[in-house]
Design a protein around this nucleic acid. Structure first.
Lengths: 218, 218
DNA sequence: CTTGCTACTCACCGACCGGTGACAGATTGG
DNA sequence: CCAATCTGTCACCGGTCGGTGAGTAGCAAG
């Protein structure tokens, strides 16, 4: 509604809402940020055009114009995602010398576990991946797995898995375990009866994970 | 409104739609079946009063009357779920003698893997569990985990895990891995780069899983 | 100042959502 | 026979959704 005293042009009390500057780049960034924030905090369930526009404080029309709708916006998130691994997971070996494939996988497991625990957006995306198979989520999924595979390849160096072990299948199991346990814990602080609240609980989980890795790879 | 031609009582052309019999028990069952079918086939995303009523071929009002709304209906599903484990997973040892804890866990892993692969409803519920933390899903989750824990306890018999291994944590990891890999495969036929389409692919996954179990428990 | 472009907002659409109150027809008990 | 009850249907509510067409405010060039 227009103020009753429209004749008065001077903003008597400073209009608390700071004026939106006309700046396309900034607006695009605000939309993207809002989308990521919303997805990370609320999950994919209520992720939609209206909610993003509300979160970005602009009209949803701009999302259509700048990103071509929600699909394009999700794609933009996926592009951003490419830098996730390189941003959040160290690329070096933490000063350790990885002598064996077992050393490598143990370290990768720990790094991935911690990184996923620390990143709500990534968790939501993983949950999304296993709940739906739309075009949107496929794009995200692809970007994520590609980045992850590249990271692993980089870390692997020249180490090779021991003979007689289907490393790809085993590693898929290990990463699956990590993803599921982190997601379950994020939602309900437990997984399969195992409580996962404080750091001590997570220590136990990490130990179990290392034991599994070492059990297979020595 | 009363029909204008209320005097005409005879349905001239045979009413193709077969008359719904007035039968509360049958209707309740139809609603419950529709809910389970809908959840299994469409997932929790579009699971709602309207959709269930449509699927059951009755008015949504009846869901409110008979189940007290969607919450009550979900609770009824949860109750049904209690019999899931006992229905779908064999309680005996398949003619094998489980001599060691490793034998036991290997067998449990295989049974759980196959059972989950074969049950879309259960998969959807697991996906729901890690995507949301509403009251509804908590009830389902509780029913499921309780039934599962009971089954494991029953199968365990007097076997005890080896000393020095945090069996609870390790087993949580193993079950987490199974759940995640099955869910991922159900949606996209792969998990962490491992293709999971045909039986041969699953054989590899099962072998990897067994190797993990044996690596920990011998 | 006018013209034209860009950034942005607004009002509105049809569709579907969960939820509710009123009502119709069959069944049952007095 | 009437009245109460049970089973089921229907119309309607406010709200939110994704999507669109029209209009407004800032700004720069001529």
């Amino acid at each position: 509604m227009a103020p009753a005293n429209a004749a008065v042009k001077i903003p008597l009390e400073a209009p608390v809402v700071e004026k939106r500057v006309r700046n396309r780049a900034a607006t695009e960034q605000a939309i993207l940020d809002a989308a990521k924030r919303l997805l990370a905090e609320e999950g994919f369930q209520n992720f939609g055009i209206n909610a993003v526009a509300r979160g970005a404080g602009c009209d949803k029309q701009l999302i259509y114009r700048y990103y071509g709708g929600l699909n394009g916006l999700v794609e933009a998130i996926g592009t951003d995602l490419g830098s996730w691994v390189t941003d959040r997971i160290p690329d070096d070996t933490g000063g350790m010398f990885l002598l064996t494939y077992g050393d490598l996988m143990e370290r990768l497991s720990m790094l991935f576990l911690d990184a996923l625990r620390a990143d709500p957006l990534m968790r939501r995306i993983v949950a999304w991946e296993i709940s739906e198979n739309s075009e949107q989520v496929r794009r995200l999924s692809e970007a994520r797995s590609k980045a992850l595979a590249g990271w692993i390849e980089r870390m692997r160096g020249s180490l090779v898995p021991p003979k007689g072990v289907d490393a790809q299948a085993v590693n898929a199991m290990i990463f699956a375990a990590i993803q599921h346990i982190v997601l379950a814990a994020a939602v309900s602080d437990q997984c399969a009866g195992l409580v996962l609240k404080n750091g001590k609980d997570w220590e136990k989980a990490a130990t179990a994970l290392k034991r599994i890795v070492r059990g297979v790879y020595g």
